[in-house]
């Protein structure tokens, strides 16, 4: 009796490990396969059945990539875009999050609900009007114009507000009594205390901006101004290289910052996802 129970338990553990490992393989193998192939010649990478050891080992793909003058520009543009978005959201959403969480002013909750309601509107609805607005501002084909659209996101404001609500009210009260007005309190007390939440906002906004496609596709026009996702899909569709391996190498270069960031911060990021989901 007892030994059969033990046996089924062992069976379960074996099954669990098998299933989890199988899926780990499924999720990881495209990355591994691409990584290996990026050091192969296209001739070898497209051989069937697939080969796993680059022979000859070549950096040709990466060299081709950087020989194309556009590619470093795309990296720069993506970094600039992500930097603007991260900076804007850190600054503006923390200010607004604090005001919505801790200050009293008429219409506060109604306004905040109105901002949250915006999350229901699909981006495709506002795409054309925003294109026209940015066009009128003369900011089409301009990273700054593109960044303006998501400089102060509602989700980051929401996250900051939740964070400030979770801090004890007494600290804010103490600052008021010690002689800080609301804005001074923000700079002296809120910002230093909000480091963890600001970090979360920064990481999420970075991932979002670095990976963004639709916005850059619509608002950027000339190849010199593209970001990596738009640039790579452009390179693919124009068949800039006769071989596919440079595209793979380019994809890996483009994915590298997000992957490195994720692996470095995985515990923290996964927790953040969980907190976000918890609000639902």
């Amino acid at each position: 009796m007892r030994s059969s129970l033990k046996l089924t338990k062992l069976g379960w553990i074996a099954l669990t490990c098998f299933v989890l490992s199988l899926f780990a393989f499924i999720y990881l193998s495209p990355f591994i396969r691409s990584f290996v192939a990026s050091f192969m010649t296209w001739e070898q990478a497209s051989r069937y059945p697939p080969e796993w050891i680059p022979d000859p080992f070549t950096l040709e793909n990466y060299m081709k990539l950087f020989k194309l003058e556009l590619f470093p520009r795309w990296i720069f543009n993506t970094a600039l875009y992500a930097g603007l978005i991260v900076a804007g959201n850190i600054m503006f959403s923390s200010m607004a999050g604090y005001a919505f969480a801790r200050l009293k002013f008429p219409g506060r909750d109604a306004l905040f609900s109105a901002l949250l309601a915006l999350l229901m509107i699909p981006i495709f609805v506002t795409l054309v009007p925003n294109y026209i607005i940015i066009y009128r501002l003369g900011l089409i084909d301009n990273i700054a114009g593109l960044a303006l659209l998501s400089l102060a996101n509602v989700p980051s404001t929401f996250l900051m507000r939740q964070y400030f609500l979770s801090l004890p009210q007494e600290v804010f009260d103490a600052a008021r009594i010690d002689g800080c007005g609301p804005i001074k309190t923000f700079f002296y007390i809120c910002l230093p205390l909000a480091k963890p939440a600001l970090g979360a906002v920064a990481v999420y906004q970075f991932l979002g901006a670095w990976n963004a496609f639709l916005g850059p596709l619509v608002f950027l026009r000339t190849p010199e101004n593209f970001t990596l996702p738009v640039g790579l899909s452009f390179a693919f569709q124009r068949s800039m290289w006769t071989e596919y391996t440079p595209i793979i190498a380019g994809s890996l270069v483009a994915a590298a910052p997000t992957i490195v960031l994720f692996i470095a911060l995985n515990k923290y990021l996964i927790k953040g996802i969980v907190i976000q989901a918890g609000k639902g």
């Binding site: 004890p168 007494e170 600290v171 009260d173 103490a174 600052a175 008021r176 009594i177 010690d178 002689g179 800080c180 007005g181 002296y188 007390i189 230093p192 205390l193």
Partner: peptide
């Protein structure tokens, strides 16, 4: 409240966690 010249001690003390004791008192 900044102009009332009152001081308050809170139940949870409400010290500023990111400042040293010196900075807290100096604030």
């Amino acid at each position: 409240p900044t102009k009332r010249n009152v001081a308050m001690v809170f139940q949870s003390y409400a010290l500023y966690p990111h400042m040293t004791v010196y900075r807290n008192i100096e604030f």
